[in-house]
């Protein structure tokens, strides 16, 4: 299983020798120091580990790093540019769409992915798309409101 993995993370190329079956989540957190992506359940059920790989939302805790060979991975850290928050981050703050904040990076990236696919989702479509991102603090209603608001503000893919 050992070998070298090469891919792009947040627009930077990385190439590391490692066990290629390791979950992508731990490569991001432990090897690359990108701790914004969280481990919630470790089973791909809660969505806290969501990252974007080649424009698709992925649950990094259950995908081996070899499956992102040559791909472009985006984590929560990349959304903020030059100290300016991404519109989705802005609306999450504005609508208080979090309490402890643990699910938040996953929520934001899944919402990012939704808005890339469908820039004007209906409320029902938002709920369906976010169905498997869990929030133990119960901020769901504010999260939906925030995403509706982001769709308004963004009106088209970033």
């Amino acid at each position: 299983m050992n070998g070298t993995i090469s891919f792009k993370v947040n627009e930077k190329s990385v190439s590391i020798a490692m066990d290629r079956s390791r979950p992508l989540l731990w490569v991001l957190r432990s090897d690359l120091g990108l701790t914004g992506t969280k481990c919630g359940c470790g089973k791909g059920l809660c969505g806290a580990c969501t990252v974007i790989a080649d424009e698709k939302a992925m649950r990094s805790c259950i995908i081996p790093v070899r499956s992102v060979e040559g791909k472009e991975v985006l984590t929560i850290e990349e959304l903020e540019k030059n100290g300016k928050l991404h519109p989705i981050q802005e609306v999450f703050v504005k609508h208080d769409a979090l309490q402890c904040g643990f699910c938040t990076p996953g929520m934001i990236l899944n919402a990012y992915s939704l808005l890339q696919r469908n820039s004007q989702p209906s409320r029902q479509q938002i709920i369906e798309a976010m169905e498997y991102n869990l929030c133990r603090c119960g901020a769901h209603i504010r999260i939906i409101r925030a995403i509706e608001s982001a769709a308004q503000e963004m009106k088209g893919p970033r």
Binding site: T35, G36, K38, E77, L85, F92, V93, G101, P105
Partner: peptide
């Protein structure tokens, strides 16, 4: 909210000394 939307806020229990940090719920 500001510190949590970019994932940089440390979410391990606060104020724990390094010497015992390993035993605290940081398994995740």
């Amino acid at each position: 909210g500001q510190s949590r939307v970019h994932g940089r806020h440390p979410l391990a229990p606060h104020g724990v000394r390094k010497s015992i940090a390993a035993s605290v719920p940081r398994c995740q």
